[in-house]
């Protein structure tokens, strides 16, 4: 929404450039705010998403991810700030924009008692997609065998696949996935990641919200870390972690190495032993590992670098709570 105090109304070379860039971006969000009573759900969020990008919005529950997404999708009106999606404003309901975007909702929003095939055909027909194409999409997400199963009888992972298929059935340029792997077991999550990567190839832009740090690290080209309605940091996951200068953690089975000996290793910062494994925290993992090798204490060694979890801890000063 244009606000009176916005500088956007005036024509200036800078503005012209900015407008050009907005057209080039798949999504452009600027100064977004949304308040529910006293709660500032979204409190000044700005970012751009490029075409073909896999963009993640990461943060704990209640960080404002979903509200941000809903404003971009056109389900809610922002109190302040501007949003353009594929060069168009999403609010009010924009029926020229809607066919170009696909939305997978947090809840599995299915028609009751329809089979997977009927479900997908129904959603497809809302976009003028023929039934055969909907059936083909069912194969793409690996549900070909479950075509005639009613949605209530699908497993959690299958239901998520179907809801992703429902978001993709009309071949949108831009796809929103809201916590697609919530409540899935690790195996199903990994399978779904493969599917999501597949969707991303071929120039399709994906915006994903998640509260799983590992998911964002594995899937996203860039991640916006959100907490309390604000973006704390934005960048490629690897860059965020690298910029952190977080220590690596090296762990081996307990008893291979005495705690005192471990502390004496060159480069070791802190050492802890919980009775199961001994963990050495270090900023020079190669030196520590070399020294451990010399002591022949590398059985079952595991080395963990910094993660987005560490980034979150560093940014907020508190443990990440999913």
């Amino acid at each position: 929404m244009e606000k009176p105090n916005s500088t956007r109304g005036r024509v200036s070379p800078g503005l012209a450039l900015r407008n050009f860039l907005i057209m080039a971006y798949t999504i452009s969000v600027d100064g977004l705010r949304k308040r529910y009573g006293d709660v500032r759900a979204v409190d000044g969020v700005s970012f751009d998403v490029h075409q073909g990008e896999f963009f993640g919005i990461l943060g704990p529950n209640g960080a404002g991810k979903t509200t941000t997404l809903e404003i971009i999708e056109g389900l809610r009106e922002a109190d302040e700030g501007t949003v353009t999606v594929l060069g168009l404003p999403p609010w009010p309901r924009n029926s020229t924009l809607l066919p170009r975007i696909g939305v997978q909702l947090q809840a599995s929003s299915f028609f009751e008692r329809l089979t997977a095939r009927e479900q997908l055909q129904t959603f497809g027909s809302l976009y003028g997609v023929p039934a055969e194409k909907a059936d083909a999409m069912l194969e793409t997400v690996g549900l070909g065998e479950k075509a005639d199963v009613q949605v209530e009888k699908l497993s959690g992972g299958q239901a998520q696949r179907l809801s992703i298929a429902c978001a993709l059935v009309h071949d949108p340029e831009l796809v929103f996935l809201d916590e697609p792997t919530a409540a899935l077991d690790p195996q199903a999550r990994r399978n779904l990641w493969d599917l999501l990567r597949e969707i991303n190839t071929g120039g399709r832009t994906i915006v994903l919200t998640t509260h799983h740090m590992d998911e964002a690290e594995v899937l996203c080209d860039r991640v916006a870390i959100m907490d309390r309605g604000r973006i704390l940091q934005l960048g490629p996951p690897a860059a965020l972690v690298r910029g952190l200068d977080a220590p690596a953690r090296i762990s081996v089975a307990s008893g291979l190495l005495a705690e005192e000996d471990a502390r004496a290793l060159p480069g070791a910062d802190t050492v802890s032993d919980d009775g199961v494994s001994l963990t050495i925290s270090t900023r020079d993992p190669s030196a520590v590992v070399a020294a451990m090798a010399a002591k022949d204490a590398l059985a079952g060694v595991q080395i963990h670098g910094g993660t987005l979890e560490d980034v979150f801890l560093e940014l907020t000063g508190r443990e990440y709570r999913a």
């Binding site: 809607l98 939305v103 929003s109 976009y127």
Partner: peptide
């Protein structure tokens, strides 16, 4: 009520169906 609580109304709102 079912369509609202299950999010089907939201989903329909996000489709071009009138």
């Amino acid at each position: 009520v079912t369509w609202r609580t299950k999010g089907i109304l939201r989903r329909l709102r996000l489709s071009p169906a009138p």
